[in-house]
Amino acid sequence: MSKHKADKPSQGPIDVAAIRAAAKKFVDDGAVASGYKGNREEIIQMLNEALATELVCVMRYKRHYFTATGLNNEPIKAEFLEHAQQEAEHADRIAERIVQLNGEPDFNPKNLAQRSHAEYDDSGDIKSMIRANLIAERIAIESYRQMIERIGDTDPTTRQMLVEIMAVEEEHADDMGDLLDI
């Protein structure tokens, strides 16, 4: 007998009949399986805050893209546009996950800024724009880190999505940090 088998107690075979019965009984729960351990309401609330944050970031990056001027700033503008597109992809993934959890993504513009962890910025000079974006990325990274920590192992799908989004936010922060050095 190998050491690994001795370390894990046998739990027996998976109860396929019980899995099938639960899937049929709770079919209206959609993607939320009967063994789901997360606090759906809390996770949906956190995801709606993340959605608001991503949408505010899209608007900030788009504003910076369209208002940054100067021939030397074309590569920076391109970076702003790329980040805006990636933030929009994050928002889409988050909204999709909210729906999978039987929640409703909140796109209401009336209170978007209040739910967002990051702030909108209307800076006029390129250095201030870059700095505002770096600050917003740092806020997003820490927000995602705390969400991931809070979710723990209770919702592996949401956790994995947030880890992937956070990795892109870290790349964005690195990009903005590099641009500040120009």
Rank of each mutant, 00 (worst) to 15 (best):
R97P: 01
K110I: 08
E119Y: 10
E171A: 09
E89V: 11
L51D: 03
G152A: 05
N39C: 01
Y36P: 03
A113T: 09
I76G: 00
K110D: 11
L179P: 01
V16W: 15
N102A: 07
L55D: 03
D125F: 11
I19N: 03
F107E: 02
Q45V: 07
P105N: 04
K77E: 03
T157W: 09
C57I: 05
K77T: 08
T67L: 12
K110Q: 11
Y65N: 04
P156G: 02
L51M: 07
D122C: 04
K5N: 10
Y120C: 01
Q100N: 12
I182Q: 13
E164F: 07
D125R: 09
D155N: 00
A68W: 10
Y65H: 12
E169M: 06
I141V: 15
E79I: 09
D7H: 11
A22E: 13
D174M: 14
A136I: 06
Q146W: 00
P156K: 05
I126A: 06
H90R: 05
V16N: 06
K127G: 03
G35E: 07
L162V: 01
S2E: 11
R97M: 08
S116P: 00
C57A: 15
E82F: 12
K77F: 10
H83M: 08
P109A: 05
A50T: 05
S143E: 07
Y65K: 01
G152E: 04
H4P: 01
Q45H: 14
T157M: 09
H172N: 01
A167Y: 08
Y61V: 03
I19G: 03
V99C: 03
A84C: 06
A140N: 06
I44P: 02
L134C: 00
E119K: 14
S34R: 06
E137N: 07
V27I: 15
Q100V: 02
M147E: 01
H64W: 08
I182N: 13
K8S: 07
A52D: 04
V32R: 02
D178V: 11
F66G: 03
K25Y: 11
E104S: 09
T157Y: 12
P109E: 07
M59K: 12
R97L: 05
E42V: 12
P156D: 04
Q146Y: 08
Y36C: 02
E119N: 12
